[in-house]
Every structure is written in structure tokens, then in C-alpha cells.
Design a protein around this nucleic acid. Structure first.
Lengths: 195, 195
DNA sequence: AGGATAACTGAACATTCGTTCAGAAAAAAG
DNA sequence: CTTTTTTCTGAACGAATGTTCAGTTATCCT
């Protein structure tokens, strides 16, 4: 056999990315073999190399794609003027967006150490940009006298860490709806940054 | 060659555990080979099997040992009666203890998926016990009317996630001392659970 | 229709993996 | 000093790893 019926790069490409994403998130980058990914797609391992130069590039591409999407989605959002309302927007956006892409988030936070130095720097810069988006909101609130924070940098990291915690336990269909979870977290964040 | 000069299980054993700990934290369980660990210790790979039946048991032992130590350390602590003071104790204890063992923490939170179902259940139960320790504090504060929380379970997870975030960025010798970091986090936690 | 191109197979490559084990040397026990 | 026990070596095992590539077949283009 050789080329298979119905095969097309527009189809196989995304399927490879989605299979790799799922497996990397499930078992970790190092624990997943190219043959496993290929099997999930229904293809031989060699065929993957029409779509990625090597395994690491596949990981990088997934991580970079995700980070750019997060940034773009936040920037595209309608934002209120008021700092408190803006922070609420961020909290709700972060939880909702990241919950819909828990695999991507998991990988972007867990597989950094499997990147080469250069690739790591690329991803790190994107993460920094996202953190800066939140810090800008916090600084704006401090200037307006709405927030009381000894250190906006630490507060930024603390809030993001807290919100990311949702992904480790929330499963849809559980005790609380996503909307309720958003509200509970927003309540805690709001109180933690105000007096 | 065979047995080497000065060799002793009381020495080699801990050195293997410490080498494995460091490497697992640095590169991830799946990415570290038994030969790498052996090399770090200065021994051949086969010698490791005098100390662990297999690679997975080594991981489990590291994780389980860590979790039991955290629990024991918290239980051994002198605890104030007042819920607010007790919560402060917990926050400061958690940050200080986990900061001194960032490798153990990293592994305990990242390598769960590399455990067999049975081993996973063991670690998960220990983690749950630690979370319960915090939730007990929060419930106590709610009962005493000192805390305002819509859901102590979520609050527990949110607080722990927030505190764990410290480990991802704090490096000693940085802008802030550990004591200052503790205070900043305690400030945010306190505000987030009170009215 | 047929020729060009894109997509994939299947086998092969050199490495590396976790693990086992007979035997050798050091340490401990007598 | 001699015997026993502990500790480690060094080689070996089959299996799995990432990656390459010549050849084959489907699809696209004219």
C-alpha cells in the first residue's frame, strides 16, 4: 500500500495535531511515542514527518498556537473602562477560555522543560505578555484607588495561579455550573485585591 | 570490578533517592532513564535494583514519602485556637515548607499520570487528607462567623492553588525575602476569605 | 485520457530503554 | 585468618524509540 483513499493534508494535518495534543496532555510529551500518535490518526509513523520536521517542533507548534490564541482572544474582547469591571472580565474570560482548552493549558504549563532553550524563550515571552495583560488591569485599578495591592507583580501571579487551579478539579456536569464557578472565583479575587 | 570501596547501602540508598528526585523534577519521570540516575550516583544501572524493584516504585516512594512528611509536619505544629490566626499559620507553613522542597512538590503534582491506578489512589488519598486539613480551618472560621465563603471546598482548592503558584516563580535572593512573600500571600488570602 | 504531484506505506537504521543475572570484590562476622 | 554476606560490575536481553527513504498509490491538473 501507499497513498490511502481520501487522504488529504487538510484533514490529516489537523488530526495529527489533535491526536498529539490529547496524548501529550494525557501522558506527557516524553511518554508519548510518534507511533502512538500515528496509530491514533490511523496512519504509519513515517507519515507524521510530512507535517512536522520532528517531535519537538510538534510540541512547540501546539504550545505556541495556544498561547497566541489566548492573547488574541483577550485582545479581541470588548473591555469596560472601570478597573473592577475589567478585572471581572478577565477572571471570567480566563476561566471560560481555559476550561474549553484544558489539554492545551495543561501542555503549555507542564511541558516547558521539554523545549530547547530557544523554543522555551519563545513560549515564555508569550506567557509574559499574557501576565502583563492582567498586571495592566491591576495597575490601572491601583492608580484609580480601587485596588489595594502591595505588589502588582506578585498579585498577578497569585491570581493566575488561583484561576488555573480550576482546571485541576472542575469537570462539567459536577456540582456547580461553570457560571457558578466563575462567580465564586470572581468573588474571591475581588476581595483579595480590594481593601 | 565488582563491589566498590566504601560502598554501603545506608549511603547509596539515599543518594539514589536524591538523584532520582532531582532528575525527575528537572526533566520529568518519563524523560529520565535509570542509567542517568545511576550515573549521577556514580554507579552502574543494575545497582539501582538493589534499592527499588522497578522505576515506578522509585517514583511512588518519593511521592508518598513527601506527602506523609507534609501531613506530619502540619500535624506536629502548634496551632492557635482562633481561626484567623490558624489560617495564617497554614498559609505561612505551606509556603515555607513547600519552598524548601520544591522538587518534591513539583513531582507530587506533575507525575501523577505516570502512576498505576492503584498507586495513584494512594497518593490522591494523601493529598485529599492535606486539603481536608485546610478545609477544616476554613469551616471553623465560617462557623465562628470570621470567614465569608460560599463554598469551603472550592475555597480550599483555590487557596492551595494560589499558594502553590509561589513555587513557579520564587527564587531565593530575589527582590523579596521569603518572609515578605508569606506576608503578601497571607494578605491576599485573608482578604479573600473575609468579608 | 495521461502525466505530475501529493500522501502514505513498510521496512530499515542506529540508539536507547528497563530489567536480569552470574560472577567478582569489599565489608562484616566468626 | 576464614567464611559469610553485602554491594556492585559488566554484559546481555528483547522491546521500543525517533527518524529516513525508496517505492507505491491516490488525487489533481491539463
Amino acid at each position: 500500500m501507499a497513498r490511502t483513499q481520501g487522504s488529504h493534508s487538510d484533514i490529516t494535518g489537523p488530526r495529527i495535531r489533535s491526536a498529539a495534543l490529547k496524548l501529550f496532555a494525557q501522558q506527557g510529551y516524553a511518554a508519548v511515542s510518534m507511533r502512538q500518535i500515528a496509530k491514533e490518526v490511523g496512519v504509519q509513523a513515517g507519515a507524521l514527518y510530512n507535517y512536522t520536521p520532528d517531535k519537538q517542533s510538534l510540541l512547540l507548534s501546539l504550545m505556541e498556537g495556544h498561547m497566541r490564541e489566548v492573547l488574541a482572544a483577550w485582545q479581541a474582547l470588548d473591555k469596560p473602562e472601570n478597573a473592577l469591571a475589567l478585572l471581572e472580565s478577565f477572571v471570567r474570560f480566563h476561566i471560560r477560555f481555559h476550561m474549553q482548552r484544558s489539554d492545551e493549558v495543561f501542555i503549555a504549563y507542564m511541558e516547558l522543560r521539554n523545549l530547547s532553550d530557544e523554543n522555551f524563550a519563545t513560549i515564555e515571552a508569550l506567557r509574559r505578555a499574557y501576565e502583563d495583560a492582567l498586571e495592566t488591569v491591576l495597575k490601572q485599578g491601583v492608580e484609580a484607588g480601587q485596588f489595594t495591592l502591595p505588589d502588582t507583580k506578585i498579585a498577578t501571579l497569585a491570581v493566575i495561579a488561583m484561576l488555573n487551579g480550576v482546571m485541576t478539579w472542575y469537570r462539567s456536569g459536577g456540582r456547580l455550573s461553570l457560571d457558578e464557578v466563575e462567580s465564586v472565583y470572581w468573588d474571591m479575587v475581588r476581595k483579595s485585591v480590594t481593601t
